[in-house]
């Protein structure tokens, strides 16, 4: 039986991890490779690196980060942020990433999903979806550009379309829950889980080990992603996993 995956997410800007990660015993807290190693030692099942560099130079630096991570770690990792063309996908994967995550670029040009999946296989193509609940229309709307731009897509429609086009996995972030630490957005995750046949990674809202338990047992998410609770040492991957294991959830 597959284990449930715990995935720390690191925001990288110009080759450095940002958002001030508070680990002890690390000389240079901004080094993505050092932090990746710590998470690996804690038992992270996978890592996501989100490149938030705005400049062309920053993007180039990201490729060096990808190479270093792939050189030193033996766990899978995904790279997202600013991947717009098949060439970007090729460059990222050839330098050692296992998957790329497409967000705004996939909404703007959905064929990119198919191009990537045809070339490397669906398992390499993650479509990241940011969704916010629209109180008036009573539906979840898809946003792009870091949550700034609303689209006409309803989330289950877009998720199904992304899978039809070749997405091998959906990384689903609830904008309503993101940063709140009150738990994952179970209704949103359930709605998407029901309509897609590929793994769904829950994101947004993790505040405690209990929240991971909820998302794995109540909506059967395949994986759960978190950033700040791990970065700020509110808990560790290890703690979350032992909590889950005690309660009968299969973890590595």
């Amino acid at each position: 039986m597959l284990s449930k995956r715990i995935i720390p997410c690191l925001d990288v800007k110009d080759g450095r991890v940002v958002k001030g990660i508070q680990f002890v015993d690390i000389r240079d807290a901004g080094d993505p490779v050092e932090l990746a190693k710590v998470y690996d030692q804690q038992g992270a099942d996978e890592l996501v690196f989100l490149d938030i560099s705005a400049s062309h130079e920053g993007k180039k630096t990201m490729i060096d980060v990808v190479r270093s991570v792939a050189s030193e770690l033996a766990i899978p990792f995904t790279v997202g942020g600013g991947i717009r063309t098949l060439e970007d996908i090729k460059e990222t994967l050839r330098n050692g990433a296992d998957k790329v995550s497409l967000n705004s670029s996939a909404v703007q040009r959905p064929e990119l999903i198919t191009e990537g999946a045809d070339y490397f296989g669906s398992q390499c193509i993650v479509v990241a979806i940011d969704a916010r609940y629209d109180e008036d229309l009573k539906l979840w709307r898809v946003y792009t550009h870091g949550g700034r731009t609303p689209t006409d897509w309803e989330v289950t429609d877009w998720a199904q379309e992304a899978v039809r086009l070749g997405a091998g996995e959906i990384l689903l972030t609830s904008m309503n829950k993101d940063g709140e630490k009150t738990g994952f957005d179970l209704p949103l995750l359930e709605a998407v889980q029901k309509v897609v046949s590929v793994p769904v990674i829950a994101s947004g809202g993790a505040g405690s080990s209990e929240h991971f338990y909820e998302v794995f047992t109540e909506v059967d998410a395949d994986a759960a992603l978190a950033a700040s609770i791990f970065h700020y040492k509110e808990t560790s991957v290890m703690n979350v996993k032992s909590y889950l294991k005690e309660r009968g959830v299969t973890v590595r």
Binding site: M1, L2, S3, R5, Q123, S197, V198
Partner: peptide
């Protein structure tokens, strides 16, 4: 096949850590 002996469907690809 994506469907088990009891007719319930499961996810393909087989993706993740398994024992």
């Amino acid at each position: 096949p994506g469907v088990d002996e009891n007719g319930s469907s499961y996810k393909v690809p087989h993706m993740g850590w398994n024992r």
